[in-house]
Design a protein around this nucleic acid. Structure first.
Lengths: 227, 227, 227, 227
DNA sequence: GATGAATGAGTATTCATTCAT
DNA sequence: TATGAATGAATACTCATTCAT
């Protein structure tokens, strides 16, 4: 009546893994369609073709499932961002390629992005955790550069890291909400330039403008104030 | 034979207004202490010394009350940011003063800020709406400058506006979560410099660095990549 | 400071009566439009242009107001039905005129009728009370006739009265729900004939049919069974 | 290794069905005792020995449960009325047997009847739906007879059907409210005769009365007017 | 008489989670 | 492993009614 334990164990494991995968996929579909709050663990199990109780054999709750989806996506994003820095050497190339990777990611994981960071009134803290990890990466990189004496000591690396990832997140979410708001290129270019040179930057001639600004401060009171 | 209707009307109005104020204050206290989800409209009414039903005479639900608190704070913030641009003329002064205003605001409205934008898992969309309004202001300002030929046409004003307010929000929330993470000055300085010159900037001498970068790309691959 | 008590009393009375009337009219409008349950005493007061509390100065609750509307309509109906019997002498004329009066009433007071007797899920007992009074009238009349030896002793006057008013109510409500269900004439004629001769009746020749029926019972098994 | 799925499925089904039955019975008890509005779904669940939420596993709400009770009773009634027409051939036998079936039904389902059609101020529309189905049956039967040329073309079949079921419902409810109001026999006889011959009928001799009536209209102004 | 701010009791419904098969 | 019936806590909102002016 008992098959070999090994075999059974192997089969069981594979079966369990398959169930888990189906639940994850069902969750991704439902979350993308309905957001986070209105989806129930029951609904996910049903969508995956299982009974309600089965869900809890594989996930603590729906937030755990969502966190796992987000985790996978987040790791993929980090991997891509890191790849850029090893492939490119030119400064502006790196920045541009990173912005491109971010935008591509936003395109591919649009629903997930909106849920993790936004989606009208809902939220989890997965977005915050993802940002924190990105910021940690940026910050670490900054410290390396600082140790090499290559960066401006006026920047606090942690604050700067938050500034950069905050900029990324806001632009990507805003764009993901309605991709018609800007062209893909506009998003990439603006993020790249802002990250590299700030909002005061004028493209063609980086130098020589400082003087102009100093001379005619009224012409470019570039404070970016609201209203 | 009765009190004058005017008088009654006035008193009635004052009474209703006072009740409303007490509810707002009670809400502020409870939200700051317990966050948004765990506070009930009943609790707010009780904290204010009223019956449960009274709450609904003045607010649709607890989110409406919170939105009103946030709205007031948001308007105050916009007012301050705007004031800066009329008081200062020097570019760097404006940017610095704005960063200072933002940091001061984060200090004064710390709880509100954390609830509106973060607070572990909760959320409303008031944060998003506030940011959008700030972004609208920035964007409008940008368009004015662009019309005056004073800005870089490479920037999409909408994208840039999102980038700036995203940077602000992330840094302020991160700092509000734990003010020990950075000094007040570090936050202001980093935000100011990043906004004006980007992360590639080296403070003292804006020019002459482009060559250095081009020559030693490995020294300053300023891609701000994670990890 | 005090006007003559008489005068004031008179004016007050008139004013109160006017308020009451306006509330009744407002109630009629709202009940007709929204039914009984979804209308609140607040809404009635507001529709009439008064404050919420004023309602309770004139009516115990919305059901009392509705009962008063129904009472007035009911008395009008009884008056008309009674008038018919004094104006007509011919038996069939009376029955026909009554049916006509009932149908006219259903046309004029369509909304009230639907609310009092039906209106999907709502109800009060005003309908039942109205029917009971109509039945009392019918029953009393029957007893008079019985005392004069003019009616069939096989009929229990109370049961018969219920049967007649039940027939009336059901047909009128059914027709009021959708007047396109039958022509005015069909309703009147069918009610009249059924009331006078029952469903076994064949119009043209009341007599001589009994024989036919007796001879060919299978031709007219007039059991009116469902299905 | 587990119990056979079939077995489990069967047991599960039986268990669920048993729970459902217990809820229905509990509902019947409570509705009969307290009417429709004052009974809560919680109370039904508790009466049946289950937790509050269990109720909603089996019924949408208390009205759904009541509708199911009423539906079962209604079908039983229709079944009996139909059986009569197949068992009897004599016209008067059918009508009498139907009236008897209706009265028996009213005796057996007294509480349900009162709730569905009356019960002081409460109501659902289940009564209306039941009547409509009965009327549909009567109407269909009438059309068959009409097609066979066996009925009076003066009758609109739909109006007549409403008249008959209205008569039934009113008499039965009136009697169910207080069975002492009339004897069982009086109810049956009066309903039967009214349905067959109308209120003008005089039992023994259907003909020859027309002349009398025409001659002495004042003696039998059989208008059944109220008052 | 009229006002209208305040009251507060009352209840349906969802859904994460468990556990006996 | 999977099932799915059962659990039961948890909570917003309405609205009839009052009463101080």
């Amino acid at each position: 009546m008992n098959a070999a334990p090994d075999q059974n164990g192997g089969r069981r494991l594979a079966r369990a893994r398959a169930t888990r995968e189906r639940l994850l996929e069902a969750g991704r579909r439902l979350f993308a369609a309905q957001g986070l709050v209105s989806v129930t663990s029951h609904a996910i199990a049903e969508e995956a073709g299982f009974a309600a109780g089965t869900f809890y054999l594989h996930f603590k709750d729906k937030h755990a499932l969502f966190a796992e989806l987000a985790e996978a996506a987040s790791q993929e994003l980090e991997r891509r961002l890191l790849a850029v820095t090893t492939e490119k050497t030119e400064l502006s190339d790196i920045a541009y390629a990173q912005a491109d990777a971010l935008v591509s990611f936003a395109e591919e994981q649009r629903e997930l992005l909106l849920i993790a960071f936004h989606r009208g009134g809902e939220s989890t803290d997965v977005g915050a955790r993802i940002l924190q990890r990105l910021a940690d990466g940026v910050s670490a990189r900054r410290r390396e550069l600082a140790a090499a004496g290559a960066t401006d000591p006026a920047f606090d690396p942690d604050v700067l890291a938050q500034a950069i990832v905050g900029m990324w997140a806001q632009v990507l979410v805003w764009w993901a909400e309605d991709p018609a708001r800007a062209t893909r290129e506009d998003v990439i270019r603006t993020m790249t330039h802002f990250q590299l040179f700030g909002s005061r930057h004028e493209t063609t001639d980086l130098c020589g403008q400082g003087a102009a600004t100093a001379e005619n401060p009224n012409d470019t009171p570039d404070g970016d104030d609201p209203r």
